[in-house]
């Protein structure tokens, strides 16, 4: 599964892991991952994400819009090249990027 969801044992934190390419082919799956709004805190785990393109950036922004500005969303474990793309697109303003 390219999009995997795991709730932490105290149900507080939803971790969404993206495996392989993060692009428009995941648009529905990714949306489904957060739309049930489980957990009070969201983490996008990019450890296994090899590439992302601008459609993935759009998907992340949509997630932010849906969950609202106050939702805690972290993007974690980015490889350097992915981090650069996020930084270029100034996503650090909207997400906490580790």
């Amino acid at each position: 599964m390219p999009v995997e969801c795991a709730l932490s044992s105290d149900n507080a934190e939803l971790t969404i892991s993206i495996v392989g390419r993060f692009d428009f082919e995941l648009v529905q799956e990714f949306r489904a991952a957060y739309s049930e709004k489980k957990g009070s805190r969201y983490t996008i785990d990019m450890r296994a994400t090899e590439h992302m393109d601008s459609s993935a950036l759009g998907m992340l922004l949509n997630m932010r819009k849906t969950l609202g500005e106050s939702a805690k969303i972290s993007i974690v474990n980015c490889r350097p090249q992915i981090k650069k793309i996020l930084t270029i697109s100034r996503f650090d303003k909207k997400f906490s990027i580790e």
């Binding site: 393109d53 601008s54 759009g58 922004l61």
Partner: peptide, 16 residues
């Protein structure tokens, strides 16, 4: 324009 969920591709290309 920051919120637009599109149009980031062109800026990405420009920067890289």
């Amino acid at each position: 324009g920051d919120d637009d969920a599109f149009g980031r591709g062109v800026s990405l290309i420009d920067t890289l």
